[in-house]
Each structure stands twice: as C-alpha cells, then as structure tokens.
Amino acid sequence: MGPFLLVTIQIDLYDRLALNLEADLVQKVHQTGARGVLIDISAVSIVDSFMGRILGNIASMTRVLDAETVVVGMQPAVAITLIELGLSLKGVHTALDVERGMALLQTKLDLDYEMADDDADDIE
C-alpha cells in the first residue's frame, strides 16, 4: 500500500471499538511510517458526536506523526446530519471515494516537497 494506509469501516461501531480503532491506527502509522491514512466510511450509516470526535482525533494524532488523514465516502444523509448536529470535522480532509482520496494525499505529499506547510484545503 505504498506510503498510505487504508481503513474500511464496515460496521456501526460502538464506543469501545471506535477507541480501539483510534489506538490501532496510530500504532500502525508509527510502525509503517505511512504518510497518509484513508478512512473509508461509505458503509457507515451513523456518525454521532463521539464518532466524529474519534475521526478528528485520528486526524490530529496522525498529523503529529507526519501523516495526513482523509475521510472518504461519507453518505449524504450522514453529512447533512453532522452539519445539523454542529460538527464540521475541522482539520479532517475529505474526498468522495478512495481513488480521489489517494489523489488528494498524493498532491499533499508532492506539495510537501515543494513548499512548507499548507493547510489551505482544511475543512472549516
């Protein structure tokens, strides 16, 4: 998987599982020295504030380890609900699907070589 890790969440997670995911993923990034993490949530039907917080945590934690996190494939209903809930996943990059997520990570890596930090694509 080159410099990127891909995680596909296929079931609705309860809290303990989500926390495990967070811990495992951060471990994995450290072990592999991955420069990017893709989290595919296209099969997830509910993202509540807890799950949203986990996604945000993963993004911040991996960033400290010099890897960017992209959440891909969010369902329209989930996006609308998150906005209404008041959660816009600040600091988490998003993409429509895995392919585009990869492309986004690749451009971020390329940019890294060219210039210093650029967070222009961050979600507000």
């Binding site: 816009s88 429509l96 997520g101 507000e124």
Partner: peptide
C-alpha cells in the same frame, strides 16, 4: 453556509 459545509464533508 450549511449547504457548503455539508458538501465539503462529502469531499466536494
């Protein structure tokens, strides 16, 4: 703004 934010969450 809500519509824009939701669109961004989708990755667009």
């Amino acid at each position: 703004i809500k519509t824009v934010s939701a669109t961004r969450l989708m990755g667009a």
